[in-house]
Write a protein that binds this DNA or RNA. Structure first.
Lengths: 261, 261
DNA sequence: ATGGGCGTTGCACATCCTGCAACACCTGGA
DNA sequence: TCCAGGTGTTGCAGGATGTGCAACGCCCAT
């Protein structure tokens, strides 16, 4: 691993927490000021870092552009989106789409009950991995050894009394989810919020994404939400079919129309 | 500028155009495969790059999380404040900064004419949402359905003879404001007070805040206040630029932040 | 005026990155 | 079954490149 690049990239999450001046960056990085300066300059030249008027550094616009492109290149999202909207229109509830990447589960799309257009508000934020219904689905699909490894290194914060308390309970839950092919989160993250979720599978049957419908207790009871399960599963299956289906059955997508040399 | 970091960062926009394998990355970078491999590994360790099942690389979803965290920690007020002060010093009038939150419009900063230092006196109090210039700007940016919903459930108190009388008039006013990119309140809240306001926009072009200059009739006439409009708009644009992390003269997105998608 | 804090620069040293070449692995074809 | 061609991966020696130091300039506050 390249030391210089490693140091430079370590600056990004550091700045994500808020602006910082050169001295702070150097200190938190454990390098000399002049070194930090050169790294920041390079990041700046690429637009990943912006220098505000008080000379402090923060993340720059190009990073946002890249992030945008990163998510738009996830073709699951593109395929799933109209289905999410349709589901939202039928149920009126919030619909999420999430993927698993590098030990994290991230929301990559969201349709809010009130706002039919995509809201980038919380998209991109890692979910509460030990309790979220979508996380259960995505982790349940991992091979057993990996599942155990992940479960072992997670923290199990007790958001509510119904949160998954420890690795043993989590693995048991994952096994059940794996078996039944769907998942729920009944007040495990926030007392009054329930979710039902179903997996999106690729051509090889592996879970590539998970979608969920969420609603607060005050709108529908858990039982009423669970009644939506068949609809949610059907929608997820539709997405799976379209994703793995006729167009590109192989990892080799063939010629991509937006592939401009 | 650091060569190694420079090369590593050059990979990101390259991958933004779509997944690529090691050879392609090395070739487009103009370096040896082993070099590209090490750079990619480092990017991978930081989650900026993801390796899909066919071993090709693409941008990682962590980029999203990073960008997301950054915008959440971005403080409009902190960035705007020096600009507000500068505007206050040039005009001598009261300067406000407001945001839209949970159906309300709140002042989050204020610089009084007489007191050059920040006055938190009324900061945090909801504004007269149907007449305040800043409120018009913030609401005018909402998607149409939401705008209608908000307008429908508001009360329209007749503070003065010039107050917005009802939802129809309000929506009409919002449409005009949306079109022209600035707003006024000419005696709509208090008979003798006039305001001119301009929007602060984020990287995606959406209005994240609005600033206004207010002055009583006895100090300057409405016409004289309106003459300050270009200055107010310019200041708001400066804040927008700084807030969205856009560095100087960028060849890509046009220099006119006023035209919207 | 004067001191302290911060960002910036030039430079000599040696660290760390580079490219090479060999290796491991897979896939397809003879 | 073996081989050929492609890809990703590794260890290594040389030297380009990043590093920390110290000195400088600047601005602000005292």
């Amino acid at each position: 691993m390249s030391q210089t690049v490693d140091r430079a990239l370590s600056i990004l999450p550091l700045l994500a927490r808020g602006p910082a001046d050169l001295g702070q960056v150097a200190e938190r990085l454990g390098v000399h000021k002049s070194t930090a300066l050169r790294l920041l300059r390079t990041l700046h030249d690429h637009g990943l870092v912006y220098r505000q008027q008080d000379q402090r550094y923060r993340l720059g616009a190009r990073l946002f552009a890249l992030a945008q492109e990163a998510v738009e290149n996830l073709d699951v999202r593109e395929i799933a989106h109209p289905h999410l909207v349709a589901l939202n229109e039928r149920t009126g509830h919030t619909v999420h789409l999430a993927v698993h990447e590098e030990g994290e589960v991230l929301y990559i799309d969201k349709v809010e009950s009130r706002y039919p257009v995509r809201m980038y508000s919380r998209i991109g934020k890692p979910v509460a991995i030990t309790v979220a219904a979508v996380a259960k689905l995505l982790l349940a699909d991992l091979p057993e050894t990996e599942r155990r490894a992940v479960a072992a290194r997670l923290d199990y914060p007790l958001y509510t009394a119904r949160s998954t308390p420890n690795a043993v309970a989590f693995l048991k839950e994952l096994a059940a989810v794996r078996e039944q092919g769907w998942a729920t989160d009944l007040g495990g993250h926030e007392e009054s919020i329930n979710c039902v979720a179903a997996p999106v599978r690729g051509a090889d049957g592996r879970v590539v994404a998970a979608m969920s419908v969420s609603a607060p207790n005050v709108v529908v009871t858990a039982d009423e939400l669970l009644a939506l399960l068949p609809l949610v599963r059907r929608t997820a299956d539709d997405i799976s079919r379209e994703y793995s289906g006729t167009s590109g059955p192989d990892p080799d997508d063939g010629p991509d129309p937006k592939d401009r040399a």
